[in-house]
């Protein structure tokens, strides 16, 4: 019983960590631009697929991974430059549609650059399961958890301690005030897309050895990441992490103890219930509407 519980918990944590990384990407862009970027899942796909193809041409992991992350970041920057920036001032829904268009475009591009098949990636350090209190975990899951933790720490240092990070944070709080204080708001917006694309790519690379990857792997992960970000409170870094982990654990616990067929539905019912009582998510900004 308790070994079973531990197993569900470990699984939930691993899945949740990935959701958290995707959710962080959503939040960073949202903070800088108020845009919900529905192409976030495609960054996850690009990370995984690019690594697979770089490994296939003979590069070692140490080279392939940074290159893949850089590639995704470049795509993120291009997305901002050529799709979001020209539409400045458009309504929120219009921007959402643009990012959805971008996600379809990127998926289509991926089928041409790569293919439509599933691809496996070798685990970073073997695949002999490790036993913890009667439950087992793959070494790759430890990578997922460890890297997620490192990313979260790095981000909190970045936003709390660096000038650029503080500028990004300031922009999210009050765009106009930030601009008046001499912050280059457009640059912040630009960089936020690069940063969250890189985060998505990291998630995609970490998960690929566990789940395999393909051109449309980003659709579901993007959706779950969005849900996690909303559950935690859009725009909140802590919220994204907590939301991701909570969603992951809810799913595995529902699958384990209730019904595996309805686990996603149960997760969404819980999210809806949370939103009814906390309309801005667990850690979202509260406050009145500006008239």
């Amino acid at each position: 019983m308790s070994a079973q519980f531990t197993q569900y918990l470990l699984t939930g944590l691993t899945v949740g960590a990935i959701y958290a990384l995707v959710a962080l990407g959503f939040s960073i862009i949202f903070n800088a631009s108020n845009v919900i970027n529905f192409a976030q899942g495609e960054f996850v796909m690009i990370g995984g697929m690019a690594t697979v193809s770089l490994i296939a041409v003979g590069l070692p992991y140490l080279l392939a991974i940074p290159l893949a992350v850089a590639a995704a970041a470049l795509v993120g920057l291009a997305l901002e430059k050529f799709a979001v920036e020209p539409a400045r001032g458009a309504s929120v829904v219009t921007l959402i549609i643009i990012t959805i268009g971008a996600s379809i475009f990127l998926r289509g591009l991926a089928t041409i650059i790569w293919d439509k098949r599933f691809h496996a990636l070798k685990p970073f350090t073997g695949d002999a399961p490790i036993t913890i209190a009667g439950a087992t975990i793959l070494p790759q899951s430890l990578w997922v958890l460890g890297v997620t933790l490192a990313v979260v720490l790095a981000l909190s240092w970045f936003f709390g301690r660096t000038l650029l990070g503080k500028a990004m944070l300031a922009t999210s709080h009050n765009r106009l005030a930030a601009q008046l204080a001499g912050i280059n708001v457009r640059m912040v917006l630009f960089l936020s897309f690069g940063l969250s694309a890189a985060l998505g790519a990291v998630a995609g690379i970490l998960i690929a050895p566990i789940t395999t990857t393909s051109y449309d792997v980003g659709v579901m992960l993007g959706l779950k990441g969005f849900a996690a970000a909303m559950l935690g409170g859009m725009g909140s870094g802590v919220g994204a992490v907590v939301g991701g982990i909570a969603l992951g654990i809810t799913e595995t616990m529902s699958a384990g103890y209730l019904s595996s067929a309805y686990k996603d539905a149960i997760a969404f019912v819980i999210i809806l219930a949370v939103l009814f009582f906390m309309p801005s998510g667990l850690f979202g900004k509260r406050g009145g509407e500006r008239v």
Binding site: Q4, Q7, Y8, T11, G12, T14, V15, I18, I207, I210, T211, V217, V219, M220, L221, K224, E251, T252, M253, A255, G256, S260, A261, K263, D264
Partner: peptide, 20 residues
Amino acid sequence: DETYGAGDTDMTAQLTKIKN
């Protein structure tokens, strides 16, 4: 009789249930 969803990344929960 267990099932998993579209795009699921991990099925250990269902398999643990079966194992037990």
